[in-house]
Design a protein around this nucleic acid. Sequence first.
DNA 1: CAGCAGGGGGCGT
DNA 2: CGCCCCCTGCTGT
Length: 471
Amino acid sequence: MGDGGLLSLSWNNHKATFCHILSTLREKERYTDVTLACEGKFYPVHKLVLSTCSEYFESMFEHTPCKHPIIVLKDLKSDEVESLLSYMYAGVVNVAQNDLARLIKAAELLKVKGLAVPDEPPQEVENRKNSPPRSSRDDRSSPHPKRRRRDDSDGVAGEQHGTNASPPASPRTSPYHAASEFHQDNSRTHNEGHVSEHRTEKSIDRLEHDVRSDAKSTGDLNPDQHNPAKPCSPLQVMLEETLVKEEIMDHLPEDKDSLMGSGMDYGSMTSDGRLENSSSDGGTQEHQLLSAKYEQQSLAPSQTHHLPEAVVEALAGPSGMQGWLGGGGDMSGTFSGVDSYGGDSRHQDLRQPLPTQQPQAHQMALAMNSEKKYSMGRLAVVGGCPKSTVGNEQKPEGHVRPWTSHIKKFECTYCSYFTITSTNLMNHLRTHTGEKPFACVYCPYRSTQKGNLKTHMNKHHAEYMALRNSQ
DNA sequence: CAGCAGGGGGCGT
DNA sequence: CGCCCCCTGCTGT
């Protein structure tokens, strides 16, 4: 790798982490922008995920301007929905053999990529479903492979609720990936030796470590359990049913409350809790968009409110998911949410005229970065004067300018920084662009500011400076 | 201690 | 107004 060589930086655990974060976001109901309703249960999920995994949803959202539509899945069972969601979020779903045909049918109904295989009879698909063991290879690359053994889980094959919250147990790269693996499994259905082959060594180590620690806590777990085929039937049954159920129960009431409270019209609820869409005539088989009432007023604010939190919690890690999130179409709101992380409402104003030439994701990433810096205390941006405390401390009397909005002249297009001088802004911009135009002639040192280079020269190449001064 | 980054004065155009 | 230059505080090693 010589000078100028390209370095390929790869995030070893990226896919697994990605899936995990997705699942986490779903669990925490962060950024959810669509709610699936089925049998009286509500599943706040993400359009992005749904449309990624299903052209059906994709086109549905495409034609639905509503910010937070409620989609009533009428001809589906809630457990099917849960399974499908698990499949879409985690890339893997555990299903009892008996329920497989039902699930596949549901998947076909919703055109879920990788699961919907209309051309082939369910039987064949069943064979392919031996793949869950294989999918577990990615299990092990999960950041939190918290699988718990349910020795007698075979007996509860009919229960699939658990899949809903199993994502952390088995993040998958993507449904596409899953689909392709199904095909691979055709040729080697029983070969479980491949289970972990595709993982990177690092993720293996880390995950096995996680698994072991998990095993310690649960007592009977061993790493091999990531191979679901071992203890269970080819169609592995849920491992976390009770756990998951509890989580669901925790969430649903809130959902209902909030949904109802927001004036959402869900149609009528039958006595057994099933959701009946009043407008459903049964002719169209699956879902109807019920109403657009459930959107901005009640939901958007909380979303924006949650974002910074989630950025910290769910998107932990320096890289986070900025790029991914930036792909959303409604980033202005979320972006301002991030932006307000510093607690400075002023940012909202500054954000308005943000130039659009920057990809939003980029802006978001940079903004997050800069906010981080600010929160670290480099600039006291939080509240009141946006100017640096540096200036205040440095020249208490010098900071007499009223730092009001009409004074600021130069705004950074990447973050909320602003200054009264273009020079300062230019210097600042280099911190974003990475440009270091001032290079030391004696060493690889480069600087964003000439003065910094000079300082460097004085300290490290004093003789050069002396010579130069004498000339 | 070295480096980074922001503030601001001075000067030329 | 833009550029140059210097000063300064903060942070990481």
